[in-house]
């Protein structure tokens, strides 16, 4: 029972990061109908930016801010310079371009920083706080959960309470009509990429210290788990991404705890398969009629 409690708490902490990263995937999917396979590599680039700033200044928090700023710039830059010019003739086009970006980003990061694992610091201790004899969440885990909670609340407010959020939703659902109503659809698309990349940067900052260290490929497996989370949630649904992220975190934690860590990648795929068999659109796919 103690073990179950431990695995549950641990799974939720991991799942929170998957949720954040899945949100980044969902943001771009909603805005551009593109599955951004470069999300992981982009996030790693921003964590390297944080690493450099922290090295230079000695401050974790300056590095943290640098990662978010780098995310905004990188996301906007990639949309403006690359994605905008990908022809919409086939959905494969953007996938191939995104995969090309992964290779490019990883090669550039490898050239600048080398391919060894670099240890990254955390602002809080990672040793678990003992509750009733079980070592549960660490202070760092609490920080991760809190950061993701703040992120989710802020995104929810943005989309449901602000005029920018309304324009972003409308631009995604009906770009032409939105333009007729005075909405700058192209500008919002750039903003959507910037926002998604900043969310990815946050997720990267949170997860990299819990992995082996910073390396150009650090986020590859995290991306797979988060992508699964996003698909489980229906790709279109921010709520789905959060629930999907937590679900994937729990499944991976239980699988690693009860079956051994070798099977965790298999567990992710099994979850994806089961969900797609039961509900091909994902668990939170809304029933939508687009006909007018």
């Amino acid at each position: 029972m103690d073990r179950f409690l431990f695995l549950t708490v641990d799974g939720l902490a991991k799942g929170a990061v998957y949720a954040a990263f899945a949100l980044a995937v969902v943001l771009i999917w909603r805005a551009a109908r593109i599955v951004n396979f470069a999300q992981g590599a982009m996030a790693v680039a921003t964590v390297y930016a944080a690493y450099s700033v922290t090295q230079a200044t000695g401050s974790y928090w300056l590095g943290f801010a640098a990662a978010l700023a780098a995310g905004l710039l990188l996301g906007a830059g990639i949309e403006r310079a690359v994605m905008r010019f990908v022809p919409h003739t086939s959905p494969l086009n953007s996938v191939i371009v995104a995969l090309g970006l992964v290779l490019l980003l990883q090669a550039v990061l490898g050239a600048i920083y080398g391919n060894e694992f670099r240890p990254v610091e955390t602002p809080f201790s990672r040793t678990g706080i003992t509750v009733g004899g079980i070592a549960l969440l660490s202070r760092y885990d609490l920080f991760v959960l809190g950061a993701v909670l703040v992120l989710v609340v802020l995104l929810a407010l943005l989309f449901t309470r602000t005029s920018t959020g309304l324009r972003m939703r409308s631009a995604a659902f009906a770009p032409e009509v939105s333009r007729l109503l005075g909405v700058n659809v192209a500008g919002l698309l750039t903003f959507g990429w910037a926002l998604a990349a900043a969310v990815g940067a946050l997720a990267g900052m949170l997860v990299v210290p819990t992995e082996l260290g910073l390396h150009p490929n650090t986020m590859d497996l995290v991306f797979v788990s988060s992508f699964t989370a996003a698909v489980v949630g229906g790709l279109d649904s921010p709520i789905g991404a959060v629930v999907g992220g937590l679900a994937v975190g729990l499944v991976l934690s239980y699988a690693a705890g009860y079956l051994g860590s070798d099977v965790t990648p298999l567990a992710t795929l099994a979850l994806l398969l089961v969900v797609l068999l039961i509900r091909p659109g994902g668990l939170f796919a809304g029933v939508r009629t687009r006909a007018v």
Partner: peptide
């Protein structure tokens, strides 16, 4: 075809009309 945004509510569609 009118261009009502099917996913948004009546209120949101109307707000959109004055969003700029």
């Amino acid at each position: 075809g009118r261009g009502v945004v099917a996913e948004l509510t009546v209120e949101e569609n109307l707000r959109l009309g004055g969003v700029w």
